[in-house]
Structure formats: structure tokens, C-alpha cells
Design a binder for these strands. Structure first.
Lengths: 343, 343
DNA sequence: GGTGATATTGCAATCGATTGCAATAGCTGT
DNA sequence: ACAGCTATTGCAATCGATTGCAATATCACC
């Protein structure tokens, strides 16, 4: 024999057991005050005894709310790699926690294999009440599509103040300026920029880089900007090539992400270039590993806690009728060994 | 004015537009062969024109299948930190891609804030058809609860061959033996073990560590096993303390994860201990950063691709009636600079 | 005792799609 | 012309919970 599969109970079972109607049972379970206190407790107790759980599907169908948010991780169409950037994962974790705290479920999707049309797939099909898009590329055409469709959604990216939808992101330009000014203060004269400026966020960092140079009376050399994907490997390869090409006498590198910076550091050390003495290095993100490489990495810290919470708050706001609003988050320079030259 | 919110179309709208009944429309959209080819095409074309998407909620309610899998990331009750271990994230990415490929949605949850009772929350409520549990701790009482409840689920962990549910995991013991044998071959005599053996996976690694020592005729010293959380910081602190305590003359460290290893490396280098000459170091996981620290980290590579795919395959199998079955995955030693002493 | 107000509860429709079964139309063969 | 098939299509029930509205019970007060 064995145990019967114990068919899941439904609301009507609970109602019958409690000797009330389904409507009363439903109201009792939702703490509707019109229900008599005794009745309510009786129903709740019976429900608890039988471990009854409301069928979320039926509830969603009836209430027209899924209480679920789809989080889409975008990837560069080129690299198409699985989740890997530690920074993304960091913010993903914050979003997950915050959504749970707010009573929402989180549907995760990587852009790699998903249906091209998120609106159809997640929103029209009622799988989710709203969307959060993170990852590189708020220029993605699919994001543009969303904005015209009345779908509540928020994007992590580079807020410009003029976009048609809500963008939450760090003050990349300011962060880069902090980083590069710091390098200049350490005595650097020729600083390379490693990052793909076709991504808006990185473009902003590049602008901040230029700002800092110009403020110091230095003319940015376009040749020192090297397009680099968001991986340690790309940083490594790009730095090797830069060294090989002998891009004059580099004495500083500003990498658009910590992963890139670590790749760059590897290449430098392998070639016997000392960090920070010969070349000072600054990254961006402040991922966990940055403090534990050797030399430890100076970097611009993005506030993932605030970012994740804001993404969620902004989205839930939209769902409840508020207007979409972008927001820029302050960043902070974390000085570590990779850039600090003892004076 | 502005654009009407364009109320989402339902199947009955499509049926009306196509001049057929709802049942015919439904069958046509699902390519049911009993429907006349012309009718089918007409319905499909009209549906496409109007960008009609089946309401997933209604379908789920009717078919009693959510086509959704809940993935639960477990954390140590102690540290309670947000997703951060790169290894977990790696495997999470693989799972996400694989589920999408199989036509399933993925509900992600961190144990931090979730309802204690996953079965109720995810399964009884019909939010998910099955569960995948990853993260430290297949000893979790909540996992035990699942196993007695007829819920399809799989756990990433340490397969022992005797557990009552499906566990997929690497051959931790063998991996550790590879790592430690390698250290011994490099001439190490006293090797510390950094990792918390209260986790079954780590316990297996410790057993493998002992195996290797005994095979070399060395008696394991219990004092060389140091409980360490899964973070670079813990590895750093623990190593500092070990050095401080002067645990005799350590000449090798086997860390239970790459993150721990990186923390350890930092501590060693800071104290002027050369790696690998004075102390050789091996980690576990082969996270992306391991190749890019300096010296690069020797490590035991877990096959996350195979692991993720197997978790999904095994779970979907169970959902379709197959029996739960555990499986052990082979691992591979990746030799890098942190352990290779030139002879 | 009658009347109106208030507190509780239940009826029945509804959310949107799927599917067993019945109904109809068109055809074949005798 | 009629019985017997097959090919298509539609009717209506169903999944499980929520909720507007009506119904009943209870009580206070004149």
C-alpha cells in the first residue's frame, strides 16, 4: 500500500470541513473583517491543521494579478555567455531579497534562450505584473519595445534624464571622474581606458574619464580608449596587446569593471610591470574579490543595495499607478593598493 | 486622449474574430490535428496579427501544470548573506538556460526571506511543478521535509548513494584527493585544510584530503583542519590566524573553495610568504577569477555545465514519473601557478 | 410588536483556457 | 436512397478562488 498521494485540499474542502460556504472560508482566510471572529478563527485553524495553501494559479486568474516580477538578465548579443559578471549577480541577489520581502515572486530569465518578445511572453501572458531588466544594454531594441506598450518596467543602466522609461543606475560619469582624478593625483600622466563605449554606462564612464583629464589640462588621446568586453579574459588580452603595441609609456589604467581590471592586472604582472609603481590601476564595481587580489584593487563602489531596492520600489510604484521616474545613484571611490603610490 | 490601454485579447476574442468556437480556436492554436488545416491557419494567423498570447494562469489552472520550477538557493543560517558565491551563480546560470530550453520558467528564491515551508509555498500552492535546491546544506531540515511529501525535487550536494531523494553533485572526495596528492607531489609535507566540515560536501573533501595523506603514509593532524566559511574574507582571517599561531611549518594549503583560497593567498602574500615556493595552494571550484589572480590558482574544476543540465533532467524526469536517482560527477584538477614549484 | 439598522453569511457569476463527448456535414458503397 | 464512416466543429463542464449583491439573523429602540 503506502500513503495515499493525499490529494491537495481546495478551498471548498476547507469550507466543508468548517461547515461554512466557500465565500466565507475565503474571506476568513484573508482576514476580511466582515467575518465573525469565531468563524474566522475556526476556518483558519482548520486550514492550518490541513496545511491548506491557496492555489496561487486560481487566485491569480481571478484577481488578475500574478504577484510575480520577471527579472531579465540581458547579455551582449556577441558574447552570449551565461550569468557570470559578479556585479550583476550582486544586484540580482538584492533584487531577489527585496521582492520576497515585498511579497512578490521572482521569475528569472536570461536573455540567451528566451522568447524575443518579453512583453508577450511575460506580460501579455500574465506570467508577471512587471519587468526588471538588468545587464548591459538599455539600447536594446527589445527594451524600446516595452516602453511603448504600457508595461510596468524598470531598467538598470545609465539614467540620462531624457529616456521614456525608468532607468536606475549609478552616477557613472562622476565615478569615473573620481577614479581618474585619483590616478592623476597619484602622478599618472598617460591613462588607458579599458571598456566598450558602445554601452551607455561605459560611455558615461569614458566621459567622466575625459572630464578628469581635461580638468587637469590633459588632452585625452583617443588611442588610449580600448574596447573591452566585461570579462577578466578580455581585460587580460587587451592589456597584453596594449603593452605589446607599446602605447607610449602608459602609467595608469582605468578599467570599466573590476573583472576587466583583474585581467589587466594579471597581464601587467606577467610582463613584470609593477602595480601601482609603474602602472596604477583602478576598476569599477567593487566586487567581493577586489579586496582580495594582490595588490588589492582600487575601485569605484556601486551601491548595489540601494540600487536593487530602488529598482523594486520604482517598479512596484508603477504597478500601483505611480509614474516612471529615473534615478541616479551616488558612487564612492575605494582606495586600495593597486593605485596607491607611497609618497 | 492617448492610446487606449488596449485590453489584452482573450481566446474568446480570437475565436470570434476567426468565426469559430473557443474550443476550435484553442485546438487550432495548439496544432491539434483534428482541426482542419485551413481553419487552423486562419486562427493562427489572426492570433499572430493581434499578438495574442495564451493566458498562462488560466492554462495552468486548467491543466494543473505550472510549467515552472522553483530554484531555491540555500544559505548557511549563520552567514545569511545574499547570493555571492561565484560557484553557485555559475550553476544557477546553467540551470536557468537549461530550464528555458526545456520550456520551463524559473522561479528563483533565496532562502533568506522565504517562507520556511517550501513545499507549501511552492508546490501545494501550485506555483511550481518541482524544486531544485542548491547551496550549502543538504542536511537542512527543510530538505528532509520535502522528501517525505511526494514533491518532485533535486538537490545539489554530496551524493552518498543512500539518501532518500535525488542528489546531484561532484565527486568531492576524489577531487580533494587529486588536489592533495598534487600538493604532496610538489613536495608539501604539512598541508592545512580550510573548510567547514559540517557541510557534507566539505566533509567529503576532507575525507579525500585524508585519503591522499594516508596513501602517502602521512598521518592527518586534526589541528590542520580549520573551519572556514565560504568567503574570501573567512579564508583571509583564518589563514592569518593560522600563521599567527604558527601552526608548525605549513607548506601547503588546500582550500575548500576558490573564494577561500583567494583570501588565504592574500594573507600569505601580505605576510611575505611566497606562493607556491613556501606554501603551495589549491582551491576548489574553478571560478572565473581563479585564472586571473596572481599567482593564478590551482583548483579542482567542477563541471557546472553537466551539473546544471543533470539537475534539470533529473527533475523533469521525476515530474514525468521517473524515479529519483542521485549522480556523482567527475572532477578535474587544473594546475596553475599557485601550486607548481619548478623543479 | 413593529421597524430600521447592523452584523454575518451564502449564492452565483467570473477570471480564461482546455477537453470529453455529442452533433453535424459530407462521402462511400451497395 | 440509405446505412455507416470519417472529418470537423461546438457545447458545456471544469480547474479553484474571489467578490458584488442579496438574504438572513440579531438587536436596539420606540
Amino acid at each position: 500500500m503506502g500513503i495515499k498521494p493525499a490529494k491537495t485540499l481546495t478551498l471548498s474542502d476547507i469550507a466543508r470541513l468548517a461547515g461554512v460556504s466557500e465565500s466565507t472560508a475565503s474571506r476568513a482566510l484573508r482576514d476580511n473583517p466582515v467575518i465573525n471572529a469565531q468563524t474566522r478563527e475556526k476556518v483558519q485553524q482548520i486550514a492550518a491543521e490541513h496545511q491548506f495553501k491557496v492555489n496561487a494559479t486560481a487566485r491569480s486568474l481571478r484577481t488578475q494579478k500574478s504577484h510575480t516580477i520577471a527579472v531579465i538578465i540581458l547579455f551582449d548579443a556577441k558574447t552570449q555567455q551565461t550569468i557570470t559578471d559578479p556585479f550583476l549577480l550582486d544586484i540580482l541577489g538584492v533584487i531577489a531579497d527585496e521582492l520576497t520581502r515585498q511579497g512578490y515572486d521572482m521569475l528569472l530569465s536570461t536573455s540567451k534562450t528566451t522568447d524575443k518578445d518579453w512583453r508577450s511572453y511575460y506580460f501579455d501572458s500574465k506570467r508577471a505584473d512587471g519587468l526588471i531588466v538588468i545587464g548591459q544594454g538599455e539600447h536594446d531594441e527589445r527594451v524600446e519595445q516595452l516602453s511603448s506598450a504600457g508595461v510596468p518596467f524598470v531598467v538598470w543602466g545609465a539614467p540620462t534624464g531624457s529616456e521614456a522609461f525608468a532607468v536606475i543606475g549609478s552616477d557613472n560619469r562622476q565615478g569615473a571622474t573620481l577614479a581618474v582624478s585619483h590616478l592623476l593625483a597619484q602622478g599618472c600622466k598617460r591613462i588607458a581606458f579599458l571598456g566598450d563605449i558602445r554601452h551607455t554606462e561605459i560611455e558615461m564612464r569614458y566621459l567622466g574619464y575625459q572630464d578628469a583629464l581635461q580638468a587637469a589640462g590633459i588632452k585625452p588621446e583617443p588611442l588610449l580608449q580600448l574596447n573591452t568586453d566585461f570579462t577578466a579574459q578580455a581585460g587580460y588580452v587587451q592589456t597584453q596587446q596594449a603593452l605589446f603595441k607599446q602605447l607610449g609609456s602608459l602609467d595608469g589604467i582605468f578599467a570599466a569593471s573590476d573583472a576587466i581590471a583583474m585581467g589587466a592586472m594579471k597581464a601587467l604582472l606577467e610582463h613584470g610591470v609593477s602595480v601601482p609603481q609603474q602602472v596604477a590601476l583602478v576598476g569599477f564595481d567593487d566586487i567581493a574579490m577586489s579586496a582580495y587580489c594582490t595588490p588589492s584593487l582600487t575601485t569605484v563602489k556601486q551601491d548595489t543595495q540601494a540600487g536593487g531596492k530602488l529598482l523594486v520600489a520604482q517598479l512596484l510604484g508603477q504597478i500601483n499607478g505611480a509614474k516612471a521616474a529615473s534615478q541616479l545613484l551616488p558612487v564612492k571611490l575605494i582606495e586600495r593598493q593597486s593605485s596607491l603610490r607611497r609618497s
